[in-house]
Nucleic acid binder design. Structure first.
Lengths: 133, 133
DNA sequence: GTTGCTGCAAACGTTTTGCAGATCG
DNA sequence: CGATCTGCAAAACGTTTGCAGCAAC
């Protein structure tokens, strides 16, 4: 149930919000564009407008419930934010997105920012990869 | 003079192409949106259409003369491609972009891709930072 | 002179917004 | 019932494209 999270975000618990959040929760670790979600909702018999999907996703992003990623495509991708930081690997052949976490890498980034006189706030790393042949 | 590079890219040496490439060469390491460049060209008394700027930048990108970056803003940024790989640090307060290179980081990324059974083709890393207070 | 380029305006795909009616609490 | 939300269609945004005229070689 996603009611609690929505309420905690200061939002009314409405059907579209529940349905979108529930879908993302059931598909943890997968990435969807707004249009993907629109189609999924339609397929599930939920009658939500595309504009609402965008609005809801923005609200969820602000609330920290979902995270937004702009990979190389023109459309942004959204996924459930589980609170566990991870980076992404994109298979350039299949377009498949794999998540990973490497603490050595995280450390190194802190060190690099520091070395330049900065404090690291956030980062975004995407590795473009190909299956070993 | 940027004539040689343009010719080598298989393109005619035209005024718009020369003026854009020259400007980027004189501002190595800085990042500009298409509109930035449009304004700069106007300011320099060069009469180029925005559409031409976009066309020329795309051609230069294909030729490896410039590289394109999508930071957090909606507009893409372009910079002269000097052939030396580097990553970017964005100061979240000022919006300033700093370039850096760290070979340990590069190595580590290769290792991570490998560990997951992939071959690393490319990567994109942006550190969001704040001046140490 | 031919080929390729430019400027303009119109088209494009993605995302946002205004508004009248519907839904939540 | 009031406040907030939704769907729709229209607007906005950055970028691309078609086309008639222009510049490069």
């Amino acid at each position: 149930m996603s009611k609690k999270e929505i309420k905690q975000a200061g939002l009314k618990v409405t059907l579209p919000r529940l349905q979108v959040l529930e879908f993302l929760t059931n598909n943890k670790g997968n990435h969807f564009t707004a249009e993907d979600l629109y189609d999924e909702m339609k397929a599930a018999g939920h009658d939500i407008g595309l504009a609402t999907i965008y609005r809801v996703l923005n609200q969820f992003e602000t609330a920290g419930l979902v995270s937004k990623n702009q990979f190389e495509n023109t459309q942004a991708s959204y996924e459930l934010d589980t609170g566990e930081h991870h980076d992404h690997m994109v298979d350039v052949d299949s377009g498949k997105v794999v998540e990973f976490f490497d603490s050595e890498l995280e450390q190194l980034q802190l060190k690099i920012a520091e070395k330049n006189g900065y404090e690291l706030i956030d980062h975004k790393l995407v590795l473009y990869v190909k299956k070993k042949s």
